[in-house]
């Protein structure tokens, strides 16, 4: 389905644009980190070690207030002391308030973000493209009805709707065995990959409208083409016309929109996790929320996971720009956050 011309355009644009190369490098890096998390993470991401809490990243030192109770002149007194904390080689990015290794948590956080981004977008594409192609191909009342539904959906900001749905439905997650740990390579790492099911369904439910609108537009423009009329005259069924003629013609704009939506959904997931609605305890947004409380003493807890989000999303947006410039689908593909 990918024509030689498309491949040529992609290559030419890639050669011209240094930013596209940066984008691909970032995306590949984040993908590798997510897949190889058990191998790359130096520690178990959930293992607490209160003796090593709030260690700063390498190259920094921090002063923390320590509250201890001590025997002073025969009575127990609460003593506040300032303690100088130095970085530790075994925790290059420091530790959080419970002594969990930041680097390991950031590496595992990539999994949550990418799983939600990719699976949520896939589900949104399936719903949106089905609705959009049906509406655009049949037109008339079906189209009116489906488009009014999409108008109502658009009136709710995705974040607000997502909070409402998750808050009210409750968060459920699936656990699937991590193949790398199951193969016995890193037996000390978490045995399961946690798939935040509700979050994936909800981000798809609040974002499918964008795909429906693009797919509908494409279907509208294709359905009066000669080859569609010819296929109909030859007795092809509606379903086969949609699948074999209308769908392939709308793939380019959908692909470009999907790339941008992965970025938008990763941002949405991090927002949900920050607000405590995702139920995930290994997510960049969750760590930022934890770090918010320790901002004045341990700046790295909130800062570093945010940098990870920015790098991942910049990479995906750059790849999206590359695809858009190379394929020129003629959409302003800016999905909502």
């Amino acid at each position: 389905m990918v024509s030689p011309r498309t491949v040529r355009n992609l290559k030419r644009e890639l050669g011209r644009s240094a930013l596209a190369k940066v984008g691909i490098a970032l995306v590949v890096a984040v993908l590798l980190v997510a897949v190889l998390a058990p191998v790359l993470a130096p520690h178990h991401p959930l293992k607490q070690n209160l003796g090593e809490s709030q260690l700063p990243p390498l190259g920094f030192s921090a002063v923390t207030n320590e509250t201890t109770s001590e025997m002073v002149n025969g009575s127990i007194e609460v003593v506040q002391r300032e303690r100088q904390v130095d970085a530790s080689l075994s925790h290059p990015l420091g530790t959080d308030s419970l002594g969990r290794d930041m680097l390991s948590r950031i590496i595992y956080g990539a999994r949550t973000s990418l799983l939600v981004g990719l699976l949520g977008t896939t589900l949104a594409v399936l719903i949106g493209v089905t609705v959009g192609l049906t509406a655009g191909y049949y037109g008339g009342k079906v189209d009116d009805g489906l488009m009014r539904v999409s108008d109502v959906m658009l009136a709710f900001p995705s974040l607000v709707l997502a909070i409402a749905l998750i808050g009210l439905l409750g968060g459920a997650s699936l656990r699937i065995p991590d193949p790398i740990v199951a193969a016995g390579v890193e037996p000390g790492m978490p045995p399961n990959i946690v798939l935040p099911g509700t979050v994936i369904v909800v981000v798809a439910l609040v974002n499918w409208v964008w795909f429906a609108r693009v797919a509908r537009g494409e279907a509208l423009s294709v359905r009066s083409e000669e080859y569609v009329k010819a296929a109909r005259a030859l007795g092809a069924s509606d379903a086969s016309i949609i699948l074999r003629h209308v769908l392939p013609n709308s793939l380019t704009p959908i692909l470009v929109l999907a790339t941008i939506q992965i970025a938008a959904i990763i941002l949405l997931e991090s927002s949900l996790a920050y607000l405590g609605f995702s139920g995930a305890n290994l997510s960049w947004g969750f760590d930022i929320a934890q770090g918010r409380q320790y901002l004045s003493t341990s700046w790295w807890i909130a800062s570093l996971p945010g940098l990870a989000i920015v790098l991942a999303v910049v990479g995906i947006n750059l790849v999206g720009d590359w695809l858009r410039d190379a394929l020129d689908p003629g959409i302003e593909g800016e999905g909502g956050v």
């Binding site: 970025a263 941002l267 927002s271 920050y274 930022i288 909130a302 800062s303 945010g306 910049v314 947006n317």
Partner: peptide, 17 residues
């Protein structure tokens, strides 16, 4: 590019920091 790729809640926390 940085602006559309930065989660706004994190930006807010960094501004506070």
């Amino acid at each position: 590019l940085a602006g559309i790729s930065t989660p706004n809640f994190w930006l807010g926390i960094m501004l506070v920091l």
